[in-house]
Structure formats: structure tokens, C-alpha cells
Amino acid sequence: MDHEQGWPKVTATGIKQLSIKTTTLGMVSGMGNGTKTAVLRGVRLVKTYGDGDSRRVVLHECTLELYPGQVVLLMGPSGSGKSTLLAILSGLLEPDEGQVLVDDEGQLRDLWQMAPAERDRYRRRHTGFVFQGYNLLPALTARQQLEIVLHWCGDYRDSRRRVDELLERLGLQQLQGKKPAQLSGGEKQRIAIARALVKNPAFVFADEPTSALDWENGQRVMELLRLAAHERQAAVLVVSHDQRLLPYVDVHYHLEDGYLEERGLPA
């Protein structure tokens, strides 16, 4: 999982280390597209809310895989548990049952069996997030929004150059000196995506990234997420209820009444 620096060189057969480790757990053959190795697998995930009569099962033994270089779209009606599934897969919310298997420095581990500090460290190294609200710090310029993530994650190495490269690659250099108040909604979301990518993460989790934007800006955001997946070999999971995103994704899951199924994409 070479995503520590620069643009990762990932072979067509996926991430080498993980393929070795995961073979024994059956994560290679017969899972997904068969040409790449899953870098994350949610296995039989169950989540319920409430107690007694008010108990509601949000996720029924959901299983889902994320592959490097793919954009996965998770759709479903409001309240169907899409965000809950994203939170569980990304290490923010503990499932009641099931596993989230990830590669941790060559070892296949259940994210939810890790100690909290280990899980934080894992997230620090491997995950990026984009949310509906851009949540940019109002005092900082676009460039500083990216730098603060690197610096506060303890990664000062070449931070300036890395931020420069990313802003240039995403076509955001002209925004680097602007603060959130000077940016449009679309620009803010693009900066938020750059912030999610600045660590060069293996995973990008995006929760309704386009729902606050008009369609033109929504398309640009999806292009950036596709870029993250196809060029940087990140595994991108997008949660949305917007059907218009389907042409931009590689895999489409549908979640309804707690049940997850993979669906086809439009031709």
C-alpha cells in the first residue's frame, strides 16, 4: 500500500502486499473483478439502533469490498443506513457484528479489533474523508487547509511541495491563497477533496459530496474523485442518493431496509 508519497505505482494486479496476505482469507479470487485485490472488506456487518420495541436493524449482514482504483457508489433512500455503513467501514462507528478487514502494514486485521489508538493511527495513514458540509477552517487559506492535515498528522516531510503538486494536479492553484469565505460552494468542496487526498490515502470516503452543489459543480467534484481513484489508485466510496452520479462510478451498491446488493451500471 504505497501511498506515503507522490503518485503510487500500482500494478494492474493490485497492491502486492495485500494480495499475499489476503489470499489465505479468500479475498483475492472470486471477490470483485478478479483482476485486483480488495484493500478493504466489510464482512457481514450488522448495526442496530435503539432498544426493545424501538430497536431498528439498519444493516443486515452487509458485505462489501473496496478495490484500489475504483469508485464505488453506495445508494439508497434517506435513512437506509448508507452513512452508517460508511462510518463503520471508515473506522468511525463500531458495528454490532461483522468485521472490517484491512491491510495494516502487511498484516490483515479487523479494523474493529484494533485498539482505539491503533485505529486512529490507521485512519491517519490510510483514510481521507469528504462530507456534504465542506467544514473548512474559516481562518485558513486553501493551501493551509491541506498543510494543517499534514502537519498535525506529524508529516512535515516535503509538505509544501506535496501540497503544490496536489493543487496543481487538481487544478486548484489559483485558489490556494483564498479563505473559505472567498470561495464558492463548488470550490470549497474541491478544496475539501484536495484535503482528503493530501495524505495520499488508500481510501477516500465521501458522504453526499455533491448534494449541496449544483450539477455543474457536482460533476467537477465527481471528476476529482474519479481522478483520485484512477490516477492515484485510491479506493473511493461515495454515498449518495443522486442517480446522476452513476456514470462516474465503477461499482454501484444499493442499500435498502438494511440489505445491501450490488447493482449494474448503465451502459
Binding site: S90, L92, D120, R121, Y122, R123, R124, R125, T127, G128, F129, F131, N135, I148, V149, W152, C153, R195, A196, K199
Partner: peptide, 8 residues
């Protein structure tokens, strides 16, 4: 979001 991104 900084916490989500792993900032301690």
C-alpha cells in the same frame, strides 16, 4: 473532520 482524518 480533522479528527476523522486522523489528527490526534
Amino acid at each position: 473532520i480533522l479528527l476523522a482524518l486522523g489528527v490526534p
